[in-house]
């Protein structure tokens, strides 16, 4: 464990808490993409299948359980409890255009052709593009609530911090996972436009609006 990965995990946890707080406090999931949240739940489900079989540490097990529980909790809030506030008209990104190519790629490019490894690879590839429906939704509505922009900033920062973690692990532990690094870079690059808007607007106290 290193400081980059720890702050990355904390940023990830913070993002999930911010989203739950937003939905719970405003009793609304307006502006949140249910499709992205469904893909995040799929990411955690396919990545943490070894939760039972492969004990690594208390931290690892606890965080995995929190991520799985909170992702399904978010789906419950969005599609059951506050379903009436789900903005399906703006959440129109075609998930199959992401899930199908990612599934195909995970069969073609992986470290080991075993079920667990292919599912892990699928989850890594899927996570790198899972935010696209959310970013697409914001581009359609042209704006995002401030707390939703904080959620996205924390979520985007987590994988950027993981890139620093991989640099650290490469130089100090000789650890290198090409699949995780490439997918992590793609994932982080997708946030660049949002990061620019967030830093130039939200940090100046303005609402996050996209140029018309």
């Amino acid at each position: 464990m290193n400081v980059f990965r720890l702050t990355g995990d904390i940023a990830h946890l913070l993002a999930i808490i911010l989203l739950l707080m937003k939905i719970w406090k405003t009793r609304s999931c307006a502006g949140v993409s249910g499709k992205s949240q469904m893909m995040f739940a799929l990411v955690f489900t396919t990545r943490y299948l070894d939760l039972i079989t492969n004990f690594i540490s208390l931290y690892n097990t606890t965080m995995k359980m929190i991520f799985i529980a909170s992702s399904y909790g978010t789906l419950y809030l969005m599609f059951l409890k506050f379903r009436a506030t789900y903005d399906s008209n703006h959440d129109t990104f075609r998930m199959e255009f992401l899930v199908v190519p990612v599934a195909g790629l995970s069969f073609l490019v992986n470290h080991d052709f075993s079920p667990l490894e292919i599912l892990w690879t699928f989850s890594i590839y899927l996570e790198s593009v899972a935010i696209l429906p959310q970013l697409f939704m914001i581009s359609k509505t042209g704006e995002a609530e401030t707390i939703t922009s904080h959620y996205l900033f924390a979520l985007g920062s987590y994988r950027a911090l993981y890139i620093l973690n991989w640099v650290y692990r490469f130089y100090f532990e000789g650890f290198f996972d090409l699949i995780a690094v490439v997918a992590g870079c793609v994932q982080t690059v997708l946030y660049c436009d949002f990061f620019y808007l967030y830093i130039t607007k939200v940090w100046k106290g303005k609402k996050l609006t996209l140029p018309a």
Binding site: H12, H111, L116, N165, F175
Partner: peptide
């Protein structure tokens, strides 16, 4: 390759 054992990242 990153085998199962060193998948210690979340």
């Amino acid at each position: 390759s990153s085998s199962q054992v060193d998948k210690d990242e979340l």
